[in-house]
Design a protein around this nucleic acid. Structure first.
Lengths: 147, 147
DNA sequence: CCAAACTGGTTTCATTTGTAACCATCGAAA
DNA sequence: TTTCGATGGTTACAAATGAAACCAGTTTGG
């Protein structure tokens, strides 16, 4: 362990990124092939499916997306008639977004696939390893949000 | 926990991605502000600094980058005169890449910063949490590489 | 009441990325 | 050898991204 060398292979930021990239890329195949969605679109669908109705800003916060990503994803899903916008009564800048029947159907189709993917992935780990990854990720999330 | 709803907030692929994205983005500020490097460039610098000499293909494998990213990063670092290419004796398709003095100097400047970043990040966790994240990440890496 | 600061959301533009096509070279097999 | 498939690496083009400018509309302070 020379002091002036950085071992990329054991450098946490790199490992985390590579891991997330691999997992995310693999999972994206599902919604890409299945529904032709991009990641921002998938997250939008998933956010609205979960919460029912949200504004673009709320969506961005919930799914950690930049507002331009949200804007474009919403526009695309609207094109597909998977969601509708309803102007807010009191604040005319705000729009409430909600899935249409078609959007909800797509969401319902995706949910079991997503769950299966996660289950399968975690299934390759021992119980202890599963606990470890969950604990570790939660701890880092906490550490980062606090800072 | 409704069966037909996916909680994004606890969905591992999403959490991993967000976490890695946050960490990576924060770390990137260091090499971006300090040296004006992109992530592929940083990884290239770091890979060559660690190993001494590598071909573009090896670099791609070691740092999980697509060959086009490697190609562009190498071109940029070459522009800066931070690395040199040496044609392989036996196989004229192959080039051996190595850092110049200037490249090595930049690398040496970055290493302590990278280590400090990681140390500070892990320092926010308890010993148990640190062990957990390392164990968990390693387990997932293993699970994914095996598949 | 009015200007200035702010917020929700969209658009523009430059940069980054991924895919696929490509060029050159190499190795194996006919 | 000659040809054909693989391989190292670059390039061209399209799509995704981020930063910053922007347009409403809203709030705040004078």
């Amino acid at each position: 362990m020379e002091p002036d060398i950085l071992e990329l292979e054991s450098f946490l930021p790199y490992r985390l990124y590579r891991l997330a990239d691999t997992v995310s890329r693999e999972f994206s195949r599902i919604y890409k092939e299945r529904q032709g969605l991009t990641r921002p679109e998938w997250r939008t669908l998933s956010g609205l499916g979960e919460r029912g109705t949200m504004t673009a800003t709320e969506l961005g916060e919930q799914s950690a997306m930049h507002k331009t990503k949200v804007s474009r994803a919403v526009a695309e899903l609207e094109q597909r008639r998977w969601l509708t916008r309803t102007p807010d009564e009191n604040d005319r800048r705000v729009e409430h977004l909600a899935l249409t029947k078609a959007g909800l159907a797509a969401y319902r189709e995706m949910v079991p696939l997503a769950k299966a993917f996660e289950r399968e992935l975690l299934g390759r780990l021992s119980a202890g390893e599963r606990a470890a990854i969950v604990t570790g990720v939660a701890a880092l999330e906490e550490a980062l949000s606090a800072a």
